[in-house]
Design a binder for these strands. Structure first.
Lengths: 341, 341
DNA sequence: TTGAAAGCGCTAACAC
DNA sequence: GTGTTAGCGCTTTCAA
């Protein structure tokens, strides 16, 4: 292994000079700098990460806490992870992967052992056990998600309340009077996962405000679950003409089920999804949707963290606006036969 | 920050004694051990990861190189990642997440800076640029995937040649004479991704051996792509009655397309997928499939790596057998009208 | 503009 | 069974 001392000897300078050339933290004469750089290349020197971290009190590693549960095995998680790793690398940081089931102790472990400099935490619940822990940790963190008590924490997320409301408004504007939210699996609500709960809130409030019926139901990922859920929904509420879907894996099956039940999309049933744009666009018909800007959220989470590491202040809460793109799956509500009313 | 010296002082012993209590690397009297453990708890001591890594030459971190490309944004990757992280934690290791597009330099970077002790590399290509690099790296690695020149490397994967062949055999046994492999997107083949190429090989060899027609076609992830690919396939080869699918995201759309084209599954068209079991089981009809044992592969990859770190020899190549589970999507080939032959 | 030297917090060889 | 001590490879203060 090549050490900084080897480079120093080769270049005929002190080890500290090599260090300063590499870090740029003090002025170096052009001659010395070039000599050192040549030696670095000649010897193939790579600074030892542990030594550097020990001396500088900075590991240049961020923790990423991600849910690896089955009810969350969805492509959008990969998009978040990709954005976070890519952005971290741009700021010369690496990413340590933690699963959510390590729990609060996992956060304490990596933070208090100085394995990482900062944390990105996903899959936030409204009353998240990790929130008080994060608050006490001696290092910055960013939550992707918005818990109930976010005091003293930095949160970034899509404004899911607005997302739920935006879907209702879109459908209500088209004349739909009875809507349903087809949500995530039950376990996600039971955990009080923030994005799901907030969407519910937005959906309810908007339905109330617009004076339309708003029914909510969770839905598991199997085809049969989709079939039965939709059947029950339409049996109990035959007037429903508008569906809001927040459940990526069931989108394909759902379209299929509606076809089987003889409901044309959008003529008989309008659909709006909350999902990644590419998912919405590769369906037939292409879905009207509120996009989940995973890249932007992930990228901004890392940038906030880097800013905090540099001592800057960052916004406590960033809720990205929920933009709806109307595509082919939603249209004017079917004409209601007023004589039967 | 609480250091080992603080604990030593509190317990009235030398720092090295604390270290030995923690590591168990030498005998300690019960009395001393308990006193030290009490001090550790009382002070909330956590060993500093960098200091430990620097002194012991072990970071206790594994690198995981995973593809975060769009053509790979599939749940099975999450399953691999989950298994790898979970198993690593069981052996007291953490996982550093690298994206495949860091390339060979990324591997050198984390290895030569001693950021990690060992590497798990996924998404292997037949002629993978990283293979020669891994061979020269001063630390163990395990490939999930099987490149052409695997000399001196440790590889673990499903036996995809056998998987492709197993699907053909299953369908041929049922009397099907014309088969097609509906594969991954073109880019995956262009990169010569190992699992896709080897499946192709197995499919071809088995078709040849069984004397049946075996047509192959890539397929993108959009609904339209599936529709056009299948249409073209059936136009060019109207005799095809058996389909092998190796493309998780299109499974739903494919079933839909076949229905639209008036082909009942399995009566008119038998289907066998190469995918995770849960995906196969949540379709209607439930799919006959060769499972991708992501948990087992990921778990075993980490265990091999841990063994190697401990100096043990491990098998150079582990190909897990391809087991086919017959479900509802495959059956006897439809009766052929011999008069038209 | 550069060098010397003191740590950073831990492990492990050596000594008793 | 336990303590002493010399590093691990780097950063950064202090001094020149």
């Amino acid at each position: 292994m090549v050490t900084i001392a080897d480079v120093a000897r080769h270049a005929g300078v002190a080890a500290s000079t090599v260090s300063y050339v590499l870090s740029g933290k003090r002025a170096i004469s052009t001659d010395t700098r070039e000599r050192v750089q040549r030696s670095v290349r000649a010897l193939g020197y790579r600074p030892n990460a542990s030594a550097r971290a020990l001396a500088s009190q900075r590991s240049n590693v961020l923790a990423l806490v991600i849910p690896l549960r089955t009810d969350m095995h969805v492509p959008v998680m990969m998009q978040f992870a990709a954005a976070i790793v890519t952005t971290a690398r741009r700021y010369d940081h690496d990413v340590l992967l933690l699963t959510a089931d390590e729990g609060p102790e996992g956060l304490e472990r990596v933070a208090q052992s100085s394995l990482v400099d900062a944390l990105v935490v996903m899959d936030i619940e409204l009353h998240d056990q990790r929130v008080p822990v994060l608050r006490e940790l001696p290092m910055p963190s960013v939550l992707i998600g918005y818990p109930d008590d976010a005091d003293g924490l930095t949160c970034i997320d899509l404004d899911f309340v607005a997302a739920g409301a935006r879907c209702v408004d879109h459908l209500a504007d088209l004349g739909h009077r009875s809507l349903a939210l087809l949500g995530t699996p039950t376990t996600v609500y039971e955990r009080q996962t923030a994005f799901a709960q907030r969407t519910l809130t937005g959906f309810e409030e908007a339905a109330e405000r617009r004076g339309v019926l708003g029914v909510e139901t969770p839905c598991e990922h199997t085809f049969d679950a989709v079939l039965h859920t939709v059947q029950r929904l339409l049996d109990n509420h035959p007037d429903i003409t508008g569906l809001v879907v927040q459940n990526e894996p069931i989108i394909g099956p759902l379209l299929d089920v509606l076809r089987r039940l003889g409901r044309r999309v959008p003529e008989d049933m309008s659909l709006v999804a909350i999902c990644a744009d590419d998912v919405a666009e590769r369906q037939v018909p292409r879905l009207s949707s509120v996009t989940i800007p995973a890249e932007r959220i992930g990228g901004q989470a890392v940038e906030s963290l880097i800013s905090k590491l540099e001592g800057a202040d960052v916004a406590a809460l960033t809720l990205l606006p929920a933009a709806l793109t109307a595509r082919e799956s939603s249209c004017q509500a079917p004409h209601r036969d007023l004589t039967t009313a």
